[in-house]
Amino acid sequence: MRPVNKTTGKLALLAVAMFGFGYLLVPIYNVFCDITGLNGKTGEINIADVDPMAVDRHRTVTVEFDTNLRELPWEFVVEERKVSVHPGEIGEAVFRVRNTSDRDVIGRAIPSVAPTQASVYFDKTECFCFEEQSLRAGEEKEMVVRFVVNTELPLRFASLVLSYTFFEVPDNKTVNRNEAGFQIKNKS
């Protein structure tokens, strides 16, 4: 092989590899966020693994709840705006959604914990955000979240906010756009 072709081949290979690396950054980012809680996503824990003896009764943490909808014809509320729990104890919150439109809608809730540095210490045993929620026209549903605040939570955090945003699942997204290309809310 001509030396020029050899160099060219190697460099072309490098370019292809770097294209692959761009995609590899996606799992790397997700693993990195899992470890650090960088993007506010929370941890998961099996309810059997929660040790009732490990509850730290000397400390109380306030967990506040926040509910948002993005272009979804639903109502989304939480029964109690905030609860106080001891780290290690199983806490519970009840959320309610109602489909106010006259069509069936599938939604998915994306959780986020603020401050983000605390999100790795927030583990859920049960969450409606793990799967898609399908609501018929006018249907109402009650959903429960069970969570444990890790006993390792640094002392500087006295309260956390757990926020949910319900999105319509992309497959049946029926977003209208105006002339300028901006999305306008569905009027339904």
Binding site: L25, Y29, R70, I110, F167, V169, P170
Partner: peptide, 22 residues
């Protein structure tokens, strides 16, 4: 229908910023 950066499908728009600025 992918959701790399679409929060609705579990993606993260901030990840785009990381990849873009890389």
């Amino acid at each position: 229908g992918t959701s790399f950066f679409d929060a609705a499908g579990g993606g993260d728009p901030v990840m785009f910023q990381h990849i873009f600025w890389f």
